[in-house]
Amino acid sequence: MKKYLSFFRLRFAMGLQYRAAAFGGIATQFTWGAMEIMIFRAFYRSDASAFPMSFSATASYLWLQQAFLAFFATWMMDGDIFDSIVNGDVAYELCRPVSIYNMWFSKGLSTRLSRAVLRCFPILTVAALLPQPYGLNAPASPMHFVLFLLTLILGLLMTVSLCVLICILAFFTISPMGLQMVFTSMTDFFAGALIPLPFFPENVQRVMELLPFAAMQNVPLRIYGGSMSCYEMQKAVFLQIFWLTAITFTGKMLCRLAAKRITVQGG
């Protein structure tokens, strides 16, 4: 545990080191969020009655999305890990006496956590100060806020385990690059990163909410705004836990299989 903590500190210090990168990143995400909100504003103006949630709830959703981008962006995968798979260095790591799954998992977790911690506060602060209905709202209730934090963490763990799974799958495919690209664009779409899930047609939305992708950003960001009923929230948390267990388990199994394959083939 101590090992992981010092690793996190190192990552965080590295993030601070590149302050221009951090400022640049914050400015980028802020602009991106503002542009998204303007698109939705244009649609809202055209037909407010067709909006599935209030405009200010949509704005809050988009700001939270930008603030915690590093928690959920599947395209922020660890380049080192991918490179090691492409050039074959991964073989050495698989043969070491440490669990490669745990290592990759903690690496992904600490990278995402340090990135988000560094960037979320400025974005949240500025967004909260913006005039209504463009700014970030307060959470629906203290209970919603607690639940938001809980599902946020679950969503983060979900993202990390899904990314590790993709890394391991890449090991079995001939085109890790192609796999990564298809995977990231698909998750972006199904997780509600491009368009929040409530904007989808209702029957499509019902299916999408059952998929593992919805267990990432969709749940916490919608709970924050208070647009889910008590029953829906219970179901969502249950699904998050279910998918997290399932994906982690699958990843671990495949990891063992990959290691076996390497030892059998002799590297």
Binding site: A13, L16, Q17
Partner: peptide, 14 residues
């Protein structure tokens, strides 16, 4: 240049 350590890293931010 920056000295080692976590506090120094935070200071270097400003």
């Amino acid at each position: 240049k920056r000295n080692a350590g976590f506090g120094e890293a935070v200071k270097a931010l400003f």
